[in-house]
């Protein structure tokens, strides 16, 4: 091999090795750090692997938000209008968090069956709904065989 060829070979081998390592690490990181989304119906049906961190999405049930007076701890119920999941959270709630409005919480189910959230998002698109929640609600409607959008999803439209 000419020196030039050899140099090029090293370069190409180096690049391939670099890309392979980066790709492998990325896949590894990906597998460990992806969080799945579930709605209350799926949670109640036991679709979530035990102890796994996931995202819970739905509506904050009207009248369900409870505070321990003077402390940060908040309890509320996330519903998809068929099943409910209780949530506990002990940080500052986001601005857009309110009853009867969409929410996505990150966390795990504890031994008592309560979803302990470490992050609560009330982030939404310009129609004031988290997209996954809109979809989950729509899916729920088709499960029930409803054609017309319910009042709750309609309020999401401008």
């Amino acid at each position: 091999m000419t020196p030039n060829r050899r140099k090029r070979l090293y370069l190409v081998l180096g690049i391939v090795a670099g890309v392979a390592i980066a790709g492998g690490l990325a896949l590894q990181a990906f597998r460990n750090n992806v969080t799945f989304f579930f709605d209350p119906t799926q949670v109640v049906a036991g679709e979530v692997a035990e102890g796994k961190r996931f995202r819970l999405g739905g509506m904050v049930k009207a009248g369900s938000v409870q505070r321990t007076s003077g402390s940060l701890e908040t309890r509320f119920v996330v519903t998809d209008f068929k099943h409910d999941v209780s949530v506990r959270f002990d940080k500052v709630l986001p601005d857009l968090f309110k009853e009867n409005s969409g929410v996505v919480a990150h966390g795990r189910i504890d031994a008592a069956g309560v979803f302990v959230a470490d992050e609560v998002l009330a982030k939404h698109d310009e129609n004031y709904m988290p997209p996954e929640v809109t979809r989950s609600l729509k899916r729920g409607e088709s499960r029930l065989g409803m054609d017309e959008p319910s009042a709750s999803t309609q309020s999401a439209q401008p």
Binding site: A22, N33, V34, T35, E132
Partner: peptide, 28 residues
Amino acid sequence: IAPLLVDALGLGTISVGAPYFNPTFLVP
């Protein structure tokens, strides 16, 4: 793009956030 692909294949709704990006982005 992963959430889009996973969703299009009907494997569920996932989110990929800082736990993936922070370490992976450092590699290059």
